[in-house]
Design a protein around this nucleic acid. Structure first.
Lengths: 156, 156
DNA sequence: GTGGTACTGTTTGCATACAAATAGTAAGTC
DNA sequence: GACTTACTATTTGTATGCAAACAGTACCAC
């Protein structure tokens, strides 16, 4: 065993824990900054990233159940409930009972909701661009790839 | 102008907006997964990432004001207030008036808090490792570097 | 020393985020 | 058809996260 390995054992216990170099801290900061930029870009439309995600996915699917929408947008049932309620309250989304499954709710975009998503997409693209502004195209691609490896799949 | 460029103009308006390929969505999902892993690793100690961050920084500084602690851990004054209150309530942190500036609060670790951080650091390291498990050492370094470029500095 | 500016901690209000528990229904097995 | 299992939406409770406004104090300029 090298002297270096020996000293590492001793160092591990009381070793400096550099918070700023931990993936969790950097992920949280990066996400905070993006949310802040997104809010600026979307100020006129007053949409949070989660609300916008929900609108986009309802549009993609034309009609979705609430829980399925939650899975598509990575929100648990309790969270997506609140998001949908606020969108319904603003007249952007319609809720109607599912004709085949009485447990299920059918979510669709209203005309107003449809129009809002359409005008929101360019703003969301701007938020993406501003968030990634300091990275080269190659770096952006790398970052997306690496983060996707982190985000996808199970906890082990 | 090439035919391709022409079609791009038309495509941009109604172009497919792929939510799963947007940096914001992937950042949110990655962060969610890390928080979930962190909670598993820290289950015995019942510390959130933010609570743990605060304890580590109080230890680093020996004594800090609440607002400064918030800046060190990337939490705004309203947020750090709640985090600190919970730590004080659990007997992990002491609050005392700052001897020189009556506006300021002096935060220090209790003996119990000191002991808890010490035993929590290895668990936090495990959470980091499990979050990054699918990446090679080179990929981990790249990811940290790219995320740091996103997180640091101003919004423009 | 008076006044403006900046900083301390705090409160309120709103929007995620999720665990845990609930009621109701669907769909399978036997 | 009764039972089990799984899925629907919902409720409650706790913990961030931040904008906005607040009272109190420091500090600096003049």
């Amino acid at each position: 065993m090298s002297p270096k390995a020996t000293s590492r054992l001793a160092a591990d216990a009381a070793a400096l824990y550099e918070l700023e170099a931990q993936i969790g801290f950097v992920l949280r900061r990066s996400h905070q900054r993006h949310v802040s930029i997104f809010a600026e870009c979307m100020a006129d439309l007053s949409l949070t990233p989660q609300q916008f995600s929900a609108l986009v996915k309802i549009q993609d699917e034309a009609a979705v159940s609430q829980n399925r929408l939650g899975r598509l947008t990575a929100m648990d049932p309790a969270t997506i409930l609140g998001v949908v309620q606020r969108l319904v309250q603003r007249g952007l989304v319609d809720r109607s009972p599912d004709p085949v499954d009485p447990r299920s709710t059918r979510l669709t975009l209203t005309t107003k909701g449809q129009a809002l998503v359409t005008s929101a997409v360019p703003m969301a693209r701007e938020a993406t661009d501003r968030t990634l502004a300091r990275l080269t195209p190659a770096e952006r691609k790398d970052l997306l790839r690496l983060l996707s490896k982190l985000a996808t799949g199970e906890n082990e």
